[in-house]
Design a protein around this nucleic acid. Structure first.
Lengths: 96, 96
DNA sequence: CCTACACATGAACAACTGTTCATACATTCA
DNA sequence: TGAATGTATGAACAGTTGTTCATGTGTAGG
């Protein structure tokens, strides 16, 4: 497993996506299970626009994925790594 | 383990520190073991000032720690969590 | 002391980021 | 088709971030 400079760049980009309060709240909210945008807006108490913008960033980074059901779009964490990274970070917080 | 809003904020702040190429390179470089600033400057091929500025951020976030030996200051990862978080992130990259 | 070396730090500036506001797109139902 | 609901998106703007440049601090040796 040879790590090249590009991997380190990508890694920084990944953590950059985790490094925002709004996006972290979205990820935390989705650990419970999938939620649509309206649910998330209520959960975070933020504007629908702000949440949608951040969902797009999370989706582009392949951290969440969306599934349409009628008018609503339900988002969920894309894979188990997302939760794992979240939890590893949390460990560092609570043991600090 | 009740997670409150402040924890999520701190968590985002933590990932924010990981979310920069220079700092990720420093962390990666320190996985090998402690290094002084001059070593890191050569390793990253960046200005001493830029590296020092980022070291300060990493130190403030308690991700690295410094130990003076004569004129040099040797930096190392502060605890095992740092490496663990780095590696969890890397898993997501290489399986992408 | 004075110089050289190792590192830190403050100011400044360009680049980037996240929110808001307005508007557009998509789907359902009457 | 028209209205209502759910979501996405572009522009714009303030706030933040990382680098550079210049300078300051600390340590060892002569």
């Amino acid at each position: 497993m040879g790590i090249i400079e590009e991997d380190l760049f990508d890694l920084a980009e990944l953590f950059k996506v985790f490094g925002d309060s709004t996006r972290i709240k979205i990820i935390y909210s989705l650990i419970d299970g999938e939620k649509n945008v309206t649910n998330l807006v209520e959960d975070l108490n933020m504007s629908q626009s702000a949440v949608s913008h951040q969902l797009r960033i999370l989706k582009t980074a392949k951290l969440v994925r969306g599934r349409r059901d009628g008018k609503a779009i339900f988002y969920s964490l894309d894979d188990d790594h997302v939760k794992a990274i979240f939890e590893k970070g949390l460990e560092h917080i609570v043991h600090g």
